[in-house]
Simulated assay, not measured.
Amino acid sequence: FVVAAHCAGRGAAAGIAQRLLETLTNPFHIDGLEMCVGASIGISLSGQDGATPELLFQNADTAMYKAKALGASSYQFFEPEMSVEARRRLQVEAALRRALELGQFELYYQPRIDVRTWRLRGVEVLLRWKHPELGQVSPLEFIPIAEERGHIEAIGRWALREACRVGKRLSDQYGTQLHVSVNVSARQLRSAELVADVEQALRETGFAPRALELELTESALIDDIDQSVDVLHRLKRLGVKLALDDFGTGYSSLSYLKRFPVDVLKLDRSFFLEECPNGDEFVAALVHMAHALGLTVVAEGIETEEVMETLRGCRCDEAQGYLFARPMALAEFDKFLQCEVPGVLAA
């Protein structure tokens, strides 16, 4: 819907938007049921944001999508940088369609370290995209678009198989079993092909199922709890391990830990920030709870030795972060392993 109005300025336009939202969000009744709707409003001003009706509509539409991204019922004025963001998104969307086909994706590897011994326990695999014109595109930018546009299943399938292939090669090369952790997106979890994709990747590469760990977020799991429980049990039957990623950033319900057959709990880096009050005691309580449930605990985003001392005191199992190593390309990770192996990979 489009509203055209004479306004003395931004204040008057904002007043109209606020009154519209107040009216639209009022509850109403249909067949005895109370209903309510929300709205997102984008505003462009004639003379300031465009000289033609077409440009005004386009800019208001751009601002509306910015309002939608903020959530709830809100309004946003058009700002010039929004056009830059919109153009960037269109560029990323267009380039993403053929990125996999053109071999533009690469896996990076970040070590996971035993807290007590500082020995290498395994590695988390992270997806990276380097485009010839756009440069290095952040996963925070392209993964949501890949999920929205339906590309993530194919990308995730490639990443899973590549991670297993590399894991098998490195395990054979160094004569020890390398444990590999791969992220699974919400859309992959809802895909009917996920279990078959995992089974096929293991079969084709010969990678040991017990050495593969799939990381899933709380928000992905609770989208459809019954389906998630079913999929996780089927994955467990393949022999792979399951990790609950970013624990503490979502719902963090203990009932989910009871229902989901996970093996590993990954604590978000926000638990280890200095400004977190009673942080040490809280982390210790979480670790103790996880151990009582038979779970391994991995701390993410570790950057200082002081935090490592805290983790050691809490009896945390593993850690990863810049203190040990940044995510690295395969060639660099291979050199890292040459320094760590032989005799350093923990069983």
Rank of each mutant, 00 (worst) to 15 (best):
residue 251 Y to H: 14
residue 152 I to A: 02
residue 176 T to I: 07
residue 33 L to A: 14
residue 187 R to Q: 12
residue 154 A to L: 14
residue 270 S to P: 08
residue 126 L to F: 08
residue 324 F to C: 00
residue 65 Y to I: 03
residue 180 V to C: 05
residue 245 D to Q: 01
residue 319 A to F: 11
residue 96 L to R: 04
residue 126 L to D: 09
residue 77 F to K: 01
residue 293 L to A: 14
residue 94 A to I: 04
residue 2 V to T: 14
residue 65 Y to H: 13
residue 194 L to E: 04
residue 269 R to S: 09
residue 328 M to D: 00
residue 242 L to K: 02
residue 161 R to E: 15
residue 51 A to H: 14
residue 300 E to R: 07
residue 54 E to V: 11
residue 8 A to C: 06
residue 39 A to D: 03
residue 177 Q to I: 00
residue 285 A to D: 08
residue 323 L to V: 00
residue 170 L to Y: 02
residue 21 L to N: 03
residue 188 Q to E: 15
residue 300 E to Q: 11
residue 10 R to Q: 15
residue 132 P to V: 10
residue 332 E to R: 14
residue 335 K to H: 10
residue 280 D to I: 06
residue 155 I to N: 00
residue 250 G to H: 13
residue 109 Y to V: 07
residue 14 A to V: 05
residue 75 Y to K: 03
residue 263 D to T: 06
residue 66 K to P: 05
residue 46 S to A: 15
residue 286 L to H: 03
residue 170 L to T: 00
residue 273 L to R: 15
residue 150 G to V: 02
residue 143 I to M: 07
residue 133 E to S: 11
residue 148 E to I: 07
residue 267 L to A: 08
residue 135 G to T: 07
residue 308 M to N: 01
residue 187 R to T: 12
residue 333 F to V: 06
residue 103 G to M: 07
residue 81 E to H: 10
residue 53 P to E: 09
residue 68 K to E: 04
residue 237 R to W: 08
residue 13 A to N: 06
residue 339 C to S: 11
residue 108 Y to M: 10
residue 329 A to V: 13
residue 75 Y to A: 06
residue 199 E to N: 04
residue 227 Q to P: 00
residue 126 L to Y: 10
residue 223 D to W: 11
residue 245 D to L: 03
residue 40 S to G: 09
residue 261 P to Y: 12
residue 12 A to N: 11
residue 65 Y to A: 03
residue 214 L to I: 06
residue 309 E to K: 12
residue 307 V to Q: 13
residue 98 R to D: 15
residue 218 E to S: 07
residue 272 F to C: 09
residue 336 F to E: 07
residue 337 L to R: 05
residue 296 T to F: 10
residue 70 L to M: 13
residue 300 E to M: 00
residue 65 Y to D: 10
residue 67 A to W: 04
residue 113 I to Y: 01
residue 137 V to N: 01
residue 87 R to S: 14
residue 204 E to Y: 06
residue 322 Y to M: 06
residue 301 G to T: 05
residue 242 L to R: 01
